[in-house]
Write a protein that binds this DNA or RNA. Structure first.
Lengths: 240, 240, 240, 240
DNA sequence: CATGAATGAGGGTTCATTCAT
DNA sequence: CATGAATGAACCCTCATTCAT
């Protein structure tokens, strides 16, 4: 095997790997869309492959079960969002402010991307979605806020459950279009107050202006939302 | 002759109606058990009829769909529990104390009846279970507590979602045996604090001794729990 | 047992027998109605007992199967009609005229009682309906007409099948409201012409005025038709 | 590469389409067989898939209901037969002769292929089978015969119903093995006579020698008949 | 790798018939 | 005899997964 052959082979496999990655992406996007539409327990493969425009066989080259797809969708969506959020929370000056900023950014994404909100609602508390956030980022910020004296010391499970439970309900409200600014500010205040944060600080943190999270056009969030809007447009024009 | 005939007919239909009611009860008990085991989205009919020891056709004489059965189970279970709780909350002197007592009794039932906790966890926030409580009893007590000055005024949806979300997580913890007394006291405290209740009052309300709810041997809660224990016993002795 | 007891017992059993007969009648009427609506292969018992207002168990005291009910409906309906028709055909002067009169009366009944037409259409050629007529009355008249020289001699099966086949189609046309006077006259002419009846005689027989068959208010035909009309009225007023 | 890829893809889809067509064919053959055996209102899917040797799921990849299958069987069988018959009728010199030849060929096929006769009998007048023939070919020939003066003018519905009704009965006789040559000649004569055809012409047309319709070994008629004979052989050898 | 036909287990539903009351 | 709840066999249909091409 000479140098040229090796190079060609390298090139080939690189191209192939990229193709694989693109296909995987496409499938995950379609899955987000479909899970959001029909719920995580619904029969989903038919719709996913239709939305992605590939064959059954192809699907199984990427995911061997339904459940695997759900996990992948959850993990990829959340890691994308959480990476962006974590990159922003350092803008805030104190641990409590950082927690609050993270939660606000999260809810703001849910508001801007209804598909995201629906997916999260459908996935439920068990969905790795909130799960990973809760068991990774949130506890760190809470612990820091306790240490800094902003929060009172609660059992960590209690502190977490108040955040998780309330956020879950809030996302559900957003998904069903019942959440306005007053509701969201109120929910965040309640979460912070429950942790013992001083009432004046609560007001300051929740009232601060919020610069929205920048989500590029290639993020899962944006792309699956576009899929949804395209579908919705098609349906409404079809019935016209 | 007419009187006699009428009497016989009356007797017959009364007996028949009682039989129907008993069968319905049996099916609902088996359903609670099965939903708790397999989740509310699972296919459940097969298991329900096996647990109830009746035929496929009988099931369809009482419920025509999975969903109908779930609703029935939810409604009957909750109305039973809530009636008993409401009868007790008047023991407490103030609106906030009444809300707190209700929540404590509810969590106490979840602790004593793991099947109940699992069912509620599986049913999720959408389940009429928490739903009915939340949209009926809880708002009334919250509104009263606001009026009495114990709670600060929050949008009612916020106040509700903090209670619902945190309770949901708490019941889930109970179902997975992770909730001890400290956790439960903490969760209740957080809920009350989030509503702006004075910290000293929080401590008093949460720390008061609790007389458990009396559940008769014919309640759904007790009967379905017994079904579960019987099943568990059978399985463990079968594998021995 | 004394005379009085015997008399009472007689009376009792006579009353009971009458009650049985009335109930049987009711069931057969409901069956005609239901078979006409849903076809003879449809599931029928549920509807029959609903239409008759009796219980499942009662039904089985009178008929042990679905098929038995169909046979009974067929037989009783046809014997009722055919008895009346036979009583009338003697008004006609020749065998061919008698056959023609019988067929005309039959089609006239179908026209006046759409339920009858539908039932016959649904029952099909196999239904004992046309069957019994065809294998009993019709051949006798045809044979006589051959003997009298009005008809040419055809194999009896051929002669019968032309009558049966054409009548079947005619009743189907009536049931679907496509049969007017011209059609009916044409169909009868064709039947007679096929048997070799002289063209002038065909015209005379088919063109003669027809006195309709008198059907009393207690005949199956009339009573089941009334059931149908009541039902239709209910439905249309319900949707109003 | 593109040309090669395209070619491969073409080849693939052509092969797949052929496979689909073959499977559809197999299912229709089995359906003819099964409908003939059990009647068109029977539950048929179980038997069809057994006869075709495929799985339940496969059936639903091709037909979604019982009724759809029946229609397909009817349509494909009749279009096959009628195409062949129409190609032959031009051998006859006059419209009446062409009609007569078509009917004779049809009945001859029924005689040679008992399965065909049974299927047609079971399908009944509503079956698209006779239906399509009657509403397409037959009226054309009748109209032509009226124009040529061979037939008298009857309402078209009458002319059709005599043909359809009598043919229906004739096929039923064939199916039950009661039809000999005399019967068939008589039935055809009666049909023609009913249309007013001159008696001598009737004799000539019905008495002419008949060259049977050539049905290739891949026609539905032949293949489903073979299925039937194979099954019958198996049964008789099984009980021996 | 992509394809899509075939699979068949898994679940749903109906309804004629029985039988204790 | 009337009643109507219970039965269970017989159907119907879906869809995740496999596999030959």
């Amino acid at each position: 095997m000479n140098a040229k052959t090796a190079a060609r082979s390298d090139h080939r496999s690189r191209v192939a790997a990229e193709k694989r990655a693109r296909m995987r992406r496409t499938l995950v996007e379609s899955a987000l869309f479909t899970f959001a539409e029909k719920g995580v327990d619904a029969s989903v493969i038919e719709d996913v492959i239709a939305a992605a425009g590939v064959s059954r066989g192809t699907f199984y080259n990427y995911f061997s079960t339904n459940a695997e797809l759900l996990v992948a969708a959850n993990v990829e969506l959340m890691s994308e969002i959480m990476t962006l959020i974590e990159a922003r929370v350092h803008e805030a000056p104190t641990p409590a402010a950082r927690l609050c900023l993270g939660l606000r950014l999260y809810l703001d994404v849910a508001r801007r991307f209804p598909l995201f909100a629906r997916f999260m609602t459908r996935a439920g508390p068990a969905g790795a979605g909130l799960g990973s956030v809760l068991h990774d980022y949130v506890p760190r910020h809470i612990a820091a806020a306790v240490k800094s004296g902003e929060f009172i010391r609660l059992p960590i499970s209690v502190a977490l459950d108040v955040v998780a439970g309330t956020m879950l309900m809030a996302v559900a409200r957003i998904a069903s279009r019942e959440a306005d600014d007053t509701y969201l500010a109120g929910a965040l205040s309640a979460i912070l107050r429950a942790q013992g944060l001083d009432e004046r600080r609560v007001k300051v943190l929740v009232g601060a202006p919020l610069r929205p999270l920048a989500l590029g056009p290639d993020t899962l969030c944006v792309r699956s939302q576009m899929l949804w809007e395209a579908r919705t447009r098609d349906l409404s024009s079809a019935t016209k």
